[in-house]
């Protein structure tokens, strides 16, 4: 029973991070209409910026995270302006190739600047606490609460503010958005910023319990794809639910099946869902 509770909490932790990354991916899908492969690189850069800000600039973890959010958000916007915007009238395959190009470029760049080593990130929240008989680190509790808070904030922004709703409107009908007077270029910039910020938050939260290295975005982005396919491309509740489904399945699978198969579970889940409900659990939709 205690093991089960512990694993459920682990699932909640991993699921929260997956959901954050998948949310960014699904929002940008609404603009580009292709999965942005470079999103994994943003996640990786997010981890590095936080780490570097802590080790080189001596900033506090939280402050380093804020810097990372801004830097990665701007990097994401730069990506849109320099690469995807000029390609807006091109066939989707060119966007896909460009996205993979950005991914490879940023990874090589990270390796060039920061080296290929696996690096550890310290956290001021390393204490172990006991809650309801469970032994948890403060960092894991922070991950869950911070991620949920960010998701609630994002949901409120997309649902309740005019600016947020423009993102949904553009995803549902780009020309319709233009016809009501929405500046779609600005919406694209805003969306890319938010997606970058979410990736940076996800990476900064999870790095102290994982490691920081140039390839750290690979598995995460592949899993985020699985999540938005499970949840339905472009669906926001789908990305959140999909993130937690994957988080729970993985941590329970790792305990009760085999830890070696942890990463396979995501892809088995993908094949299962694609063969039973190919349009995803929430077929395409907004909030």
């Amino acid at each position: 029973m205690e093991l089960l509770m512990q694993q459920l909490f682990n699932g909640l932790t991993i699921g929260s991070v997956y959901a954050l990354v998948a949310l960014g991916l699904t929002l940008v899908y609404g603009i580009l209409h292709i999965p942005n492969f470079a999103h994994g690189a943003l996640y990786m850069v997010g981890g590095y910026i936080t780490l570097i800000m802590m080790t080189e600039a001596g900033l506090h973890y939280i402050l380093a995270m804020v810097v990372s959010i801004c830097v990665v958000g701007l990097l994401s916007v730069l990506m849109e302006r320099l690469v995807f915007y000029p390609l807006r009238h091109s066939p989707p395959i060119q966007d896909k190739v460009a996205a993979i190009g950005i991914l490879l470029f940023l990874e090589a760049l990270a390796q060039f600047i920061w080296g290929a080593d696996y690096r550890q990130m310290s956290t001021p929240f390393g204490q172990v606490v006991e809650v309801f008989g469970l032994t948890l680190t403060l960092q894991r509790i922070l991950i869950v609460f911070a991620a949920i808070a960010v998701m609630i904030l994002l949901y409120w922004f997309l649902k309740k503010t005019f600016t947020g709703r423009t993102i949904i409107a553009m995803a549902q009908n780009r020309e319709g958005a233009q016809l009501v007077g929405i500046n779609t270029h600005k919406v694209a910039i805003l969306t890319f910023f938010i997606a970058g910020a979410l990736a940076a938050i996800g990476a900064s939260l999870t790095s102290p319990i994982n490691l920081v290295f140039p390839g750290m975005g690979h598995l995460v982005i592949l899993k985020a794809f699985v999540i938005i396919i499970i949840g339905g491309m472009g669906s926001i509740p789908g990305a959140i639910l999909g993130g937690y489904i994957l988080g729970f399945t993985e941590s329970l699978g790792a305990t009760y099946l085999s830890a070696d198969y942890k990463d396979i579970i995501a892809f088995v889940l993908l094949i299962l869902i694609l063969s039973i409900k190919p349009q995803g659990i929430f077929s395409k939709g907004g909030v």
Partner: peptide
């Protein structure tokens, strides 16, 4: 517009 261009999920 002719094809209405509504936001279908809103």
């Amino acid at each position: 517009a002719e094809d209405r261009k509504l936001f279908p999920y809103m």
